[in-house]
């Protein structure tokens, strides 16, 4: 399905853009560090001011890598869902998967203390949080999938996804009403989205989750391409529908759920990035699209995080708001320009 084009040049540009946005991301922050000093610190030298080394290595570099993982993973999960649901508007948010993750996180952060009377959640590690929100997103994804089998109409499917989102947020509201201020705040901070608070261990865990999701996606490349024709055609091409659908769902659940667990619900990256990517890489071949959306997602996330980090100020805007502010206009622009959204 190459069509004679290899997109080598586009990929080269994207990798360069990724590198630039990575450096830009690291150079910005509440403490101004001259670019030259930042570069030399990155190359292992000790900077003039000792705290810079700490800021760069212990805070900014992990944050930049988190952004890359989050952006790449969410974009990939959006691509998988658009192909699986044969719907250009599918994405972890629209189909309620992120709300599912929120529900999982809310049940853990607020529900456990209400139900079991625990006052401290410190014993519940990050792994528990990521399992809970992954589980929540899996659950919603499975329900949406079952409904998708019965409802062939893609518009209906989207509305159902939105309804699931409403149901889960309603449950979250109820939980919030009954939970203590402390738990509520913890959940609120989680729901703003953040890529800055991950320890090296958490980063490693997130990296492993994303890696598994990416691996499962790579294994599914052939069936993803076949799904572009529709399920019946895919079947006639020898694709085992059940197995490949399940693989794609697990990959999506891991990516969207795992990332939402660590970074909070981050909107629009999953929906908008695949469409943006197709403006550059005009192909439907997933062998090209998978690395392309991951690069594009990582770049966008790094830039959004740079924006969120107000220059020369200690305040950080919620990343979720920034991605929405950037992502929603992109989707509107694409719709207005092309009149019809395609995948």
């Amino acid at each position: 399905m190459q069509g004679g084009r290899t997109y080598r040049f586009s990929f080269l540009l994207m990798v360069l853009a990724l590198l630039c946005s990575w450096l830009l991301n690291i150079s910005s922050g509440s403490v101004t560090i001259p670019f030259a000093d930042m570069l030399s610190t990155l190359f292992g030298e000790s900077p003039e001011i000792a705290s810079w080394e700490y800021i760069i290595w212990d805070y900014r570099v992990p944050k930049a890598f988190t952004s890359i993982l989050v952006g790449a993973g969410l974009a990939l999960s959006g691509l998988l869902m658009q192909t699986l649901f044969r719907n250009p508007l599918a994405g972890p948010f629209v189909l309620g998967i992120s709300s599912g993750a929120s529900l999982g996180a809310a049940l853990l952060l607020m529900g456990t203390s209400i139900l079991a009377g625990y006052t401290s959640l410190s014993f519940l590690g990050d792994i528990t949080l990521s399992i809970a929100s992954s589980f929540g997103s899996f659950l919603v994804l499975l329900i949406v999938m079952i409904v998708a089998q019965r409802v062939k109409d893609t518009m209906a499917l989207l509305i159902i996804g939105l309804m699931f989102g409403s149901i889960t947020s309603a449950i979250v509201s109820v939980l919030a009403y009954f939970s203590s201020a402390e738990d509520l705040q913890r959940f609120n901070f989680w729901s703003f989205g953040s890529v800055g608070n991950l320890s090296i261990n958490q980063l490693f865990l997130l990296g492993s989750i994303v890696a598994v999701g990416v691996l499962l996606s790579i294994v599914s490349i052939k069936s993803l391409n076949a799904f572009l024709l529709g399920e019946n055609y895919a079947r006639s091409l020898g694709v085992s529908l059940k197995k490949s659908r399940m693989t794609i769902i697990i990959a999506t659940g891991l990516l969207a759920g795992g990332i939402t667990a660590f970074a909070g619900p981050i909107a629009f990256v999953g929906l908008a990035v695949p469409h943006l990517t197709r403006q550059i890489f005009d192909t439907m071949e997933h062998k090209v699209l998978i690395p392309a959306v991951m690069l594009c997602g990582a770049i966008l996330m790094l830039l959004c995080d740079t924006l969120a980090q107000l220059p020369n100020s200690a305040s950080v805007l919620p990343i979720n708001a920034i991605t929405s502010l950037v992502g929603a206009p992109v989707v509107i622009w694409l719709l207005v320009r092309k009149r019809k959204m395609m995948f």
Binding site: G230, R278, M284
Partner: peptide
Amino acid sequence: EQPASKNLT
């Protein structure tokens, strides 16, 4: 049925 994605060449 039509192909799911008409964005294919």
